[in-house]
């Protein structure tokens, strides 16, 4: 045989899975919520989503060009960040909000820390928090869905500081479907859950994190509300819990890789979210809780290393 043969370390076969396939799955999982946002909030929503995604991709491209690195926008990870960010801003936001947010998410949170897989926080979430702290008015002008959108309060602002649901709060059915005021993508629980189920089915995320996160919030608010089930459901379906638990807390780079670590991580997210919602100054605590747990993730991972096969615990 005169041909040159490849010599390499085993294994010699690889799975079909790839980074871009995983990211594309996340995009697909976000589609129901995206379509829902456009349906509920109409043209402005479509424009904001497009701006966020395009800016995220262009920013990633530009930074990789400047740093003379291979351009990797085809792995869809920037699309995921842009889309997630868009779903986290209100439909009434001005056009420059998604642009500033996407640049911050990609340039600062993701690329400056080393790019894909190296970000210590979820880029979209960090951008949302940055935008909320910097332009609080623009980021909290919630509008109710519909063509002639009028401003309205989010369900969580109704239950803030009280332990019973006021009579003027929106209907629970509307909350599950998404016919309420809120960020574009966080209003429809059912569309987000649909996306989450797809990710679990495709093996992209473990159902453990969203289930424990949401479960913890449910248990704590159930107790805090004096075992009023509808008060608890308000907390579960209101605000950013669904999008946060399903799409943000499951971010690979900023959550622990160990099975046990994921449990502690999700538990921590649930406890902090509940505490902020019940006792904090803000009506919503999902974003802060995930970012705080993101920072704690390496530590959690360090102390939750699996017991190695055949290892005898001392």
């Amino acid at each position: 045989m005169v041909e040159k043969l490849t010599v390499s370390s085993s294994p010699h076969v690889w799975s079909e899975n790839s980074t871009s396939k995983i990211m594309l799955d996340v995009v697909i999982a976000l589609l129901p919520a995206t379509v829902g946002a456009i349906y509920f909030f109409r043209l402005n929503a479509a424009m904001l989503i497009a701006l966020a995604v395009i800016t995220a991709v262009l920013t990633e491209m530009a930074i990789q060009k400047i740093r003379k690195q291979p351009v990797t926008v085809s792995d869809y990870s920037a699309v995921v960040t842009g889309l997630l960010l868009a779903l986290n801003i209100p439909a009434s936001a001005p056009w420059w909000i998604p642009i500033v947010g996407s640049i911050f998410a990609i340039a600062i949170v993701k690329q400056l820390f080393g790019g894909l897989g190296q970000n210590f926080m979820n880029p979209a979430l960090a951008a949302r928090i940055m935008l909320t702290l910097s332009w609080t008015d623009q980021m909290t002008q919630w509008i109710k869905p519909g063509a002639d959108a009028v401003s309205g309060a989010t369900p969580l602002s109704f239950v803030k500081g009280v332990t019973a649901i006021p009579s003027k709060a929106p209907d629970l059915y509307d909350m599950i479907v998404g016919n309420i005021a809120g960020s574009m993508g966080e209003t429809s629980a059912i569309l987000l859950i649909l996306g989450g189920l797809y990710l679990v089915y495709r093996g992209v995320i473990s159902p453990k994190v969203p289930a424990i996160f949401i479960g913890t919030v449910a248990v704590i608010t159930l107790i805090a509300g004096g075992f009023d089930a509808s008060y608890m459901l308000y907390h579960v379906f209101g605000g950013g819990l669904m999008i946060g638990a399903i799409f943000m807390a499951t971010d690979y780079a900023s959550s622990p890789v160990t099975a046990k670590g994921k449990v502690f991580f999700a538990l921590g997210c649930g406890i902090i979210t509940s505490m902020i919602r019940l006792y904090g100054a803000y009506p919503e605590g999902v974003g802060f809780s995930i970012l705080l747990m993101n920072v704690a993730a390496p530590l959690i991972e360090k102390y939750t290393a699996p017991k190695v096969f055949g290892e005898v615990r001392k």
């Binding site: 490849t6 076969v13 780079a253």
Partner: peptide, 25 residues
């Protein structure tokens, strides 16, 4: 079949941890 796949950065998906039969990371 012999072509080596192009390697990308680790995205910390944790799949290797999930499937390691020796329970390593």
């Amino acid at each position: 079949e012999a072509k080596m796949p192009e390697r990308g950065p680790c995205i910390r998906c944790g799949k290797c941890v999930d499937i390691c039969p020796a329970f390593l990371q």
